[in-house]
Structure formats: C-alpha cells, structure tokens
C-alpha cells in the first residue's frame, strides 16, 4: 500500500468546496435538527473562505445541499444585490455550478440574512437562515453550557420573566427582531434576527427551514407543518411591526415589510424590503408578463 492510495487524486477543491467528510458531518447533524425541531445541534463548523459572522453557517448548509441543478437565491436584509449576498451567491455558483436567481418562486434554495421573502415558499423549497446567535437564552444566561441544561429541562422561566419585565417597564414587549419562539411545543429557539413580521411565516409552513450559526457552531431546523409560536402572554397579543399601511414609494405596493428612508425634511419614505418582490411588482405594473407568487400577507394582514 502506498500513501497516495489512501487519498483521491489531488484537486484544488471539492465540488461544493467542502470535502466529503465535512459534508457527511453536516448531513448527520441536519437530520438530527429536523428530527428535533428547534433544538440546537452542535456541529464542527469548518472554516470556509469567508469571515466568521458573514454567513459561514448558512453557507456550509447551502454548500452541503448544493447540486448542479440547484437554483439559489441569496438575500441580505431582503435585498439580492446587497454586497455580501452577491458575494455568497457568486461563490455558490462558482464552486457548485448552481444557477443564480433573484426570483423567490424560481429558487430551490434560499439563503437569507434577516428576512423571509414575502412570497410564500412552497413545499419543495428550502430556506437557509444565517444565524449570528443561536441561543435565545443568551440575555438571561451567557454561559452556553448552562443554557443547554435549561433547554434540556424546558426551563424558560427566566426568559418569560424578562419579557414580563419589559411589559411592566414599557407597557410593551420591546423585543424587536429575533423574537424567541416555541417550536413544536418543546424547544424555544431564536428565529434568527428576522423582524417580528416574518416569524409567523415559519408557523405551519409548507417549506423546510434550516438555521445555521457558523461561528457559534449550532444548527437547528423547522420542518414543514410545525408549530412556531412567539412567546406571548395570553392577554398581550403578538404584534408585528406597524408596516401594514405603509406604501412603497417606488412600486406603490402596500402592506409588506418596508425599509424606512429618512428624508431631509424630517419625514420618511418607505420602500419594499423584499427587493425583488418590488422589482417584479414594478414590472408587472408596467405590463410585463411577470408572475407574482402568492404572498403570506394579504392587505397587510397574515391569514
């Protein structure tokens, strides 16, 4: 036996960049994540050629899922042309031969930072969310090993307590994005820093969501048709951002999550946060044969 028989012929990189052993590990962990919705599965989280904190977790999952016939959409803050989203999408095309798209309805895999598209995802689509901090208990317990025991015991009392304190102090629950949510009635997870607007899109969805934190080395999932309930008190309903009556100044579309653009005169303009949904809406209004997918929100309200 010779040393070179122990390995395969040299090539600069593997298909999908990650070597087969890294992919196998991510596959094994992903299956566990799907089997225990909302539970954070630790994984090795290999180094990838982008910096930690820039989507390495999402990237590793997408690279593992990638096939040459994959159609990938990558968004950051809802926008396809955000510089980091562009960079990740180019990398996926380069190392995986994937087709790039901006159209939510065409994508097989959607990797996103901080948003879920407005068009409803189908049961054949996978949403990969980049996660900076996978631990919803971090505000009450920075020590990850203790937080893990608390999840084990379903000990969420302290988390309820800080929500209650916010309510008492401010009259409202002040949590902006990353709203802690109970998955399948057992594990509290962070839905990643998506706005409250997007959290209900995970509840009893048709699509599969995989959430991956590369730096913190945790992967978790929400399978289709799984309950995701924001932590709320019975007498204080969950409230999404007040964007239902905002109008996009570019497309004229109303009733979706908006970016606020401060103006010189002290007022604000609003534009659709889901940038390609905005583009399609404009094209459709101009008479182009564009198909808009069904949206989660209708007239600013979730069904």
């Amino acid at each position: 036996m010779k040393i070179n028989e122990l390995t395969k012929p040299w090539s600069a990189f593997n298909y999908g960049f990650l070597d087969e052993s890294a992919k196998r590990e991510i596959r094994r962990r992903t299956l566990k994540a799907v089997a225990i919705p909302g539970y954070q599965v630790p994984y090795a989280s290999r180094d990838v050629p982008i910096a930690r904190g820039w989507g390495t977790g999402g990237l590793q999952v997408t690279l593992t899922l990638l096939k040459p016939d994959s159609v990938v959409k990558v968004i950051d803050q809802g926008a396809d042309d955000s510089v980091n989203a562009s960079s990740i999408r180019k990398f996926l095309a380069k190392v995986g031969g994937a087709t790039e798209t901006s159209d939510t309805t065409e994508a097989t895999i959607i990797q996103s930072r901080h948003r879920i598209p407005e068009e409803k995802l189908r049961e054949d689509q996978i949403l990969v969310l980049q996660v900076p901090n996978p631990e919803p208990l971090r505000p009450v317990q920075p020590d990850m090993s203790i937080a893990r025991e608390m999840h084990g015991d379903a000990d969420y009392g302290q988390l309820w307590l800080i929500l209650y304190e916010q309510l008492v102090r401010s009259g409202r629950i002040m949590q902006g994005s990353s709203y802690p949510s109970m998955v399948n009635g057992r594990h509290v997870m962070t839905p990643s820093p998506i706005p409250r607007w997007d959290v209900p899109k995970l509840n009893q969805a048709d699509h599969l969501t995989i959430l991956s934190a590369g730096r913190e080395k945790r992967i978790f999932a929400v399978p289709p048709h799984t309950s995701v309930e924001p932590l709320v008190f019975d007498d204080v309903p969950y409230r999404v951002e007040d964007h239902q009556d905002k109008t996009c100044y570019r497309s004229g579309v109303e009733g979706f999550f908006m970016n606020e653009l401060p103006q010189d005169d002290g007022s604000s303009l609003y534009e659709l946060s889901d940038s390609h949904f905005g583009i399609k809406s404009i094209r459709k209004a101009e008479g182009e044969p564009v198909t808009l997918g069904e949206t989660w929100y209708k007239n600013g309200r979730m069904e």
Binding site: R27, T64, P68, L208, P224
Partner: peptide, 23 residues
C-alpha cells in the same frame, strides 16, 4: 468544479433522507 459520480449519488441520497424526516 463538476461533481463526481459519488458526489451526485450522496447529495441526492442526503436530500431524500432529509425530506423523508421533514415529511
């Protein structure tokens, strides 16, 4: 880079395994 025959097989098998647990 193009996937090898092995890459194609294992990627496809994983996708089936994943969806089988997801549904």
């Amino acid at each position: 880079i193009l996937p090898t025959a092995g890459d194609i097989r294992t990627n496809a098998a994983f996708e089936e395994l994943m969806w089988a647990l997801a549904r």
